[in-house]
């Protein structure tokens, strides 16, 4: 292909992709600007309120008032709840899944085959099937409206056990385990000292996946938690909408507060996340 024609094609491609990217980003921009508008100004201008400031925008009409109002409503408690639920779930689900994956991949004992099949076949169970019976179980255990009732069911992720079993098989050589045993390393510390560091990429990816999953989970906390003081952001924001239906600025500020920290976390760790996301699909 001749050089100039090739250049034009690449330029056209960039124009197309940039236009599309802009379309994807517009709702975010709109959300952020809307969160800075007071209720009176909400209808003035699609994005910024028009005025006689720079670029024809009334900059002085933008305000952090909605964010302050969120504080007055005690919205930060929902934020802290979300942080607590998501990080607890991420740490323990990852630890338990890694331990299970390691045992199923490397330790030979009676019943291993049966357990492997049992755990892997649970991957097929649609989570929606368990909603009603889990609620009844939590009721009988007296765990409704407790953090236990929300967290415990998330700590045995079968998908995680599957991922870690693959990761251990791929990146932990048997010889290394034997060498550690000969050096007098106890069986339990082999897991913590030898195995865990070798599957660190999977630990990062899976912790992030679990954290995001819990942060964005709506149906479980909606069903399990009744008291307002215990609710995470996902439930709190839906209720905020129920009460302040037309306070668009306030709702957008609450959405920004709920979404921004997770987005930042993701941006810092995105390489691991995407590799974890696609590793099961492409290599399978």
């Amino acid at each position: 292909m001749s050089q100039p024609r090739f250049r034009i094609r690449i330029l056209a491609l960039h124009a197309f992709l940039l236009g599309l990217a802009l379309l994807v980003l517009v709702p975010f921009t709109w959300m952020f600007i809307a969160s800075l508008k007071s209720q009176e100004d909400f209808f003035s201008g699609m994005f910024f309120p028009p005025g006689d400031g720079a670029f024809g925008i009334a900059w002085d009409k933008l305000t952090w008032g909605n964010y302050k109002e969120l504080f007055n409503l005690g919205f930060e408690r929902a934020f802290l709840n979300s942080v607590f639920y998501s990080s607890t779930s991420a740490v323990f689900a990852t630890l338990f899944a890694a331990a299970t994956g390691y045992v199923l991949a490397k330790i030979d004992f009676r019943g291993r085959k049966f357990l492997t099949v049992l755990v892997l076949s649970a991957l097929v169970i649609p989570p929606t099937l368990l909603i009603a019976p889990s609620y009844e179980l939590l009721y009988r255990l007296g765990m409704l409206d407790t953090a236990w009732g929300l967290l415990l069911p998330t700590l045995s992720p079968t998908f995680g056990a599957f991922l870690f079993r693959q990761a251990v098989k791929q990146s932990v050589p048997d010889e290394l385990l034997e060498a550690a045993r000969i050096d007098g390393c106890s069986e339990l510390s082999i897991f913590f000292v030898v195995v865990l560091p070798l599957v660190r990429p999977m630990i990062g990816a899976f912790m992030l996946i679990t954290f995001l999953g819990m942060w964005n989970n709506f149906i479980s906390p909606q069903i399990v938690l009744q008291s307002e003081a215990k609710q995470p952001l996902s439930v709190a924001i839906a209720q905020l909408r129920g009460v302040y239906r037309t306070d668009y600025g306030l709702l957008m500020a609450a959405t920004v507060v709920s979404v921004a920290p997770v987005a930042l976390l993701f941006l810092m760790l995105q390489k691991q996340f995407i590799s974890g996301l696609t590793s099961g699909a492409v290599k399978g």
Partner: peptide
Amino acid sequence: LLTPFLALFVVFMVYPLVQS
């Protein structure tokens, strides 16, 4: 190493599945 996972798995996965 298996116990925490398996215990939770049986209580919050297998049992509700049977109950459903």
